[in-house]
Design a protein around this nucleic acid. Structure first.
Ligand SMILES: Nc1ccn([C@H]2C[C@H](O)[C@@H](COP(=O)(O)OP(=O)(O)OP(=O)(O)O)O2)c(=O)n1
Ligand SMILES: [Mg+2]
Ligand SMILES: [Mg+2]
Ligand SMILES: [Mg+2]
Length: 1134
DNA sequence: ATCCTCCCCTAC
DNA sequence: TAAGGTAGGGGAGGAT
């Protein structure tokens, strides 16, 4: 059994094992002692200096089930025998003991490792399929020792292979009966869909549009044996007909996003020229440059290496290139796209020429002229010894080999300008103009035949605007149920939509997160204390128990131990005796939002129809929603958590997930004895406070990442807390269905391939990963695979930027009254307008969502539900950002007509979603530049909101200046040998998308040693900061980098830094200045998270390197014009 | 290669 | 009779 050794993080074990195969050959060969030593020390150093990012030290051998079970005197325990913690625990244990048939008796972990060793495709290389290359580096030496320890297990490889074949056979077989299985699944689906008919018992109804969406949870026990009368045909003639209609409209009304003219950035005088020229010189430019996002970064995607003596010198060239978005390498790496040289021997030139993808060798004038012109000039005419190289290179790099006019150097823009419009015009201008909707168009034009159908079907009400409300009131049954003798629907009740949103629980929980984030923004209360430098990072996942029920039950203590469901049919507030309305439950398709744990014993699930719940438990107590109560409790909980995070003893940040769920990132002092006990104590403190203040119980799960925290929370539920010490035992037996990202659609697909539990993925190793990617998609598959090994790199984002605002209504949509589509549309638009003005945004893009009844669909199983529908959507753009309901509705109607709906009664739901949002404040914002804000905010430890900031030119200049200053070599000439090219950073970064366009195939082994000048090494360190900077600008289109990404880069640099320091090739001062620049230059999502690193360095270095620090600060202060940053800022308060 | 549109899926 | 929303991630496929 491979146990994490003392020096190894438990979480890293799997990673090491995973990478062992990849690095096996090299690491076996790598005998470099210093390298090995370095690696051994790396963890310790990392923890010391950047400790906040690492998982906790290995626990001292953990019993799988010895998790902390804190006594819960202060909260009511679930009633004895309830399916609470103990029984959940039991279930988990039994699951974990279950071995999938055919699995070997070897402990799972071993099997996973040996498998990977045996099956790793050798060609994968160091890039690791998007994995961080640091980890690969980190792993290699550890992997080596690991391999030694594992050596004896090589015999298992063969065994493993047989096992794989066996499994493959199995999966083939199951594919055979997979047909049947699939058919069965389809069958079930159809059955559910057919529950349209009142004939079906619809305990499990709740099926959506395409009949597929279930709103109840974990419907696993759904009986499969039921039958239906007829299987509806899968094709829908009406639909295809409509499809073609839509297409026709499409060509007429195609809408295309057009960058408004106001979008152009204030740039050099070359701006417009450059945009045009870039279009015409595509073959020379990275695709990204084609975007007019930042035309001044015309070197983006270009990576130069300067060879020999040049004029201007290497340094100047580097600066020029980086300033305009390009990059620079001191040595030849795979990233290099162009060699810059004034002279070169023929032999050397031939080397470049004979590469599989020749690297062009250009004269420095290419850079100089490009900068002068402000555009990326074709390098063709700047090739060194042009005549010699022209043939080969031209065909390589110039597509159709169009000869580049020699006189096409500097003043060419003018002559080009005449040519380009002919090419550009038809592509961008005309179609867009046609499609844009004029904002001034406010009148609803939609009174054509189609829409009029509505009115036809209307009852003969003369004045639909003033319906006689409650004419049936005298009957006394319901005051609000009927209107003019008809059931309230979108068609009969003019304010149906408005009141609907007030009563919809799903609308409530769906909009909660945005509501609360918005509220929090107003408070500006993000004063987060500094994080201790030696802090350890934990994620707390806090989820309220049976939330909707718990809140309501505060007013009904007598029902606490009775089965309770929350539904609209619940008894009135204040009423404490269940009335005889039980009879009405028997047929009710009202949904139970949640049920308490007592009711869950009966098998009642969240989202179940009331009639199904009642069937399972006739004693069920049904209570009404209390939305205000939910908001109130949610706010109390949030306040408690935020206060907790503001405590300097354990600072952190809260990300709201929903009204009853929060994720906290907490930095905990790890110097104490038992960290795990410590965090559990913290969690219990929190839970006690939550209960005291809200009388509702919460559950807390703690882990080193989001997934593990969630896992812990699931395990601890209800009313408990749990910290993950050994994630392997926790993951063992875990159903994949219970993983985030796996819902009711994916579950059967996974099952079909034999993937049911995490163990199944373990058994299959990389084959399992392949399957996951195949079923779940590349990204999700990869993520799930990582989850299976307890890995999760998702960042905690307390203030995620909102991208869309929408409102939809798929309930009660029947046009059986005076009000038609246009009214419905306007109601939705008004709702959207309301929501947009709440947060102060406008939008450019309008998306109309439509539910259209399937032709063969019967009446919906749910009362006034939508039944089986086609889900359609169509979008169009406004010329100018707007939130005006009339404008939105107008475009909405246009889009609606494009659907070509024949019968208005087929419409079962509609929604409007606005995107391409722009902040109202944007226009008036003439405040500090982003970098100024960042620095100032960092000084006051407030979280800046720069999420949509675009960097200005002077900011880039500062970045580049600082990065240059960081280079203070100690020895100018001596070179030093770095054990591997990889460590020296000579490997393409996974995020380097820009250079892939050229991907020079200069073959090198990343594990080869390489000799470099320390000065260049440092230059590499600081230029990485610039690389991040440029990459954020071009790829993310925003200034602020996610924390974990920055961390990745830091980790990338660590080995090199360490090595150089160890060999005294650089001074501490060098490192300090470089790192300082790095942190200052790279704008991180939450500056308070990186501040401890800065603090740490400054504290250590102040004595010996005050001069360096002061000079950096001076530069910043000049930039800030007034705001004074001094040592105190770097060191933090006190 | 990248963008855009339309769609599916998931979570609460 | 009841209130099946909301927002984001991601993929396929076509246009550029
Ligand atoms: N299909 C669903 C799922 C949830 N909710 C609402 C009611 C829940 O109370 C609340 C929170 O969802 P949870 O999944 O956290 O469920 P509970 O808090 O009710 O129970 P648990 O103790 O399992 O967390 O969201 C809902 O209305 N409909
Ligand atoms: Mg909950
Ligand atoms: Mg929850
Ligand atoms: Mg799941």
């Amino acid at each position: 059994m491979v146990k994490p050794s003392k020096s190894m993080q438990p979480e890293q074990v799997d990673e090491v094992a995973l990478r062992a195969g990849r690095n096996k050959k090299n690491s076996m060969r790598d005998g470099s002692n210093s390298f090995h030593n370095y690696m051994a020390r790396k963890i310790a150093v990392q923890r010391q200096q950047f400790g906040l990012v690492l998982p906790p030290p290995p626990p001292p051998k953990v019993e799988p089930r010895s998790e902390t079970q804190i006594p819960q005197q202060f909260v009511p325990k679930p009633p004895p025998g309830s399916p609470g913690k103990s029984s959940l625990l039991k279930r988990n244990v039994s699951e974990s003991q279950q071995q999938p048939s055919g699995s070997s008796p070897t402990p799972k972990k071993h099997r996973a490792i040996t498998f990977e060793l045996g099956t790793k495709p050798p060609a994968q290389g160091t890039n690791g399929g998007g994995k961080r290359k640091v980890s690969a580096t980190t792993s290699s030496s550890k992997a080596r020792s690991m391999l030694l320890r594992l050596g004896k297990r090589h015999g298992h490889v063969q065994q493993k292979k047989e096992r794989i074949q066996q499994l493959q056979r199995k999966s083939l077989e199951s594919r055979g009966d997979g047909l049947e299985q699939k058919a069965r699944h389809e069958h079930r689906k159809e059955m559910e869909m057919e529950m349209d008919g009142a004939t079906m018992d619809s305990s499990f109804a709740s099926v959506d549009s395409s009949g597929f969406r279930r709103t109840y949870e974990t419907p696993r026990e759904l009986p499969l044996a039921r039958t239906i009368n007829d299987a509806p045909s899968t094709s829908d003639p009406l639909m295809s007909l409509n499809g073609s209609t839509v297409k026709d409209h499409d060509t007429l009304l195609t809408t295309r996003n057009v960058v408004p003219s106001t979008h152009a950035q204030p740039l050099t005088t070359f701006t417009d020229v450059s945009q045009q020229i870039e279009t015409s010189t595509l073959e020379l430019t990275s695709p990204s440059v084609r975007r007019n996002f930042r035309p001044d970064l015309f070197f983006y995607g270009i990576v130069i290496k300067v060879q020999g003596f040049t004029d201007p010198d290497e340094h100047t060239l580097r600066r020029m290139v980086q300033k305009h978005g390009g990059d620079y390498e001191t040595y030849e790496t795979t990233r290099v796209t162009h060699i810059i040289a004034s002279a070169m021997s023929t032999a050397k030139q031939n080397i470049y020429k004979n590469q599989r993808r020749p690297t062009p060798v250009c004269v420095p004038a290419w850079i100089v002229d490009s900068v002068k012109t402000g555009v990326l000039l074709p390098h063709g005419k700047y090739l060194l010894n042009k005549e010699q190289n022209q043939q080969g290179l031209k065909s390589m790099f110039h597509g159709n080999g169009q000869p580049l006019p020699v006189e096409n150097s500097v003043p060419k823009p003018t002559s080009r300008r005449q040519v380009i419009p002919e090419i550009v015009k038809p592509h961008t201008n005309s179609p867009s103009r046609r499609s844009e909707i004029d904002v001034s168009m406010v009148e609803s034009p939609s009174t054509n035949g189609q829409v009029k159908t509505i009115v036809e079907s209307a009852s003969n009400t003369k004045d639909p605007a003033t319906p006689i409300i409650g004419s049936k009131e005298s009957r006394g049954k319901t005051n609000t149920q009927f209107i003019n003798g008809k059931i309230r629907t979108v068609g009969t009740d003019p304010s149906f939509v408005e009141s609907y949103f007030k009563s919809s629980r799903l609308s409530f929980i769906g909009s909660y997160k945005q509501r609360v984030t918005n509220k929090r923004k107003e408070f500006h209360d993000n004063d987060v204390p500094l994080i201790p430098a030696d802090a350890k990072r934990f994620i707390f996942h806090v989820d309220m128990d049976q939330f909707f029920a718990a809140v309501v039950l505060r007013n009904y203590p007598e029902f606490r131990n009775r089965p309770v469901a929350i539904s609209h049919l619940g008894m009135d507030k204040g009423q404490h005796v269940p009335n005889e309305s039980h009879v009405s439950f028997k047929n009710s398709t009202s949904e139970c939002a949640t049920v308490n744990y007592e009711a869950r014993k009966y098998g009642i699930k969240k989202g179940m129809f009331l009639k199904a719940a009642y069937e399972r438990c006739p004693d069920l107590i049904v209570l009404k929603y209390d939305f205000e109560g939910y908001d109130e409790v949610a706010q109390q909980v949030l306040e408690i958590l935020e206060a907790f995070c503001a405590d300097p003893n354990h600072p952190g940040a809260v990300e709201p997930i929903s009204c009853d769920e929060y994720i906290m990132e907490v930095f905990v002092d790890a110097s104490g004895q038992d960290v795990h006990e410590h965090v559990i104590a913290l969690a219990e403190e929190l839970r006690a406070e939550i209960y005291e203040k809200t009388l509702c119980t919460a559950t807390a799960g703690i882990g080193t990442n989001k997934y593990l925290a969630k896992l812990a929370c699931d395990k601890a539920k209800p009313n408990g807390s749990f910290v993950v010490k050994d994630h392997t035992s926790l993951l063992s037996g875990k159903l994949l269905r219970d993983m985030p990202g796996v819902g009711w659609r994916s579950e059967p697909k996974l099952k079909e391939k034999g993937l049911i539990r995490v163990d199944d993925v373990w058994d299959l190793g990389l084959e399992g990963k392949r399957l996951l990617c195949e079923i779940m998609g590349a990204k999700n598959g990869e993520r799930m695979y990582d989850f299976c090994y307890g890995r999760d790199e998702r960042d905690v984002l307390p203030n995620a930027e909102r991208k869309t605002v929408g409102a939809e209504c798929n309930y009660g949509v029947r046009f059986d009254g005076p009000y038609g589509i246009d009214h419905f549309m306007m109601e939705l638009a008004k709702e959207v307008e309301k929501r947009m003005s709440c947060i102060g945004v406008k939008g450019c893009k309008v998306t109309l969502k439509l539910k259209k009844k399937k032709q063969d669909a019967k009446e919906a199983p749910k009362f006034l539900g939508h039944g089986r529908c086609h889900n359609l959507s169509k979008s169009g753009n406004l010329k100018q950002a707007s939130r005006d309901a009339a404008v939105i509705a107008s475009l909405g109607m246009k889009l609606f007509q494009q659907f070509g709906i024949r019968d208005i009664h087929d419409v079962r739901g509609m929604g409007i979603v606005m995107s391409n949002l722009r902040d109202d404040a944007k226009d008036t914002k003439t405040t500090n530049s982003g970098l100024q804000q960042w620095l100032t905010n960092a000084a006051s430890t407030k979280s800046p909101d720069l999420s949509s900031h675009r960097i200005r030119e002077e900011e880039s200049s500062l970045v580049h200046d600082l990065s240059e200053d960081a280079i203070i070599p100690r020895y100018d000439e001596d070179s030093i040998t770095i054990p591997t090219r990889e460590m020296a950073g000579f490997v393409r970064n996974r995020n380097d998308r820009g250079s892939s366009f050229y991907k020079s195939q200069y073959e090198t082994n990343p594990q080869d040693p390489v000799s470099i000048n320390p000065k260049d090494a440092l230059s590499k360190l600081s230029s990485t900061a610039v690389t991040v900077h440029n990459s954020m600008l071009m790829n993310e289109k925003r200034l602020v980098a996610p924390f974990h990404r920055v961390n990745t880069y830091i980790e990338d640099l660590l080995p090199l830094k360490e090595y150089l320091q160890k060999h005294e090739a650089i001074t501490e001062g060098n490192v300090l200045s470089t790192c300082l620049v790095f942190f200052i230059v790279v704008h991180v999502e939450r500056p308070q998270a990186v501040r401890p690193m800065i603090r740490m360095m400054v504290q250590q270095q102040w004595q010996s390197n005050a001069k360096t620090i002061v000079s950096i600060l001076d530069k910043i202060n000049v930039f800030l014009k007034g705001t004074k940053l001094d040592k105190t800022w770097l060191l933090g308060k006190g």
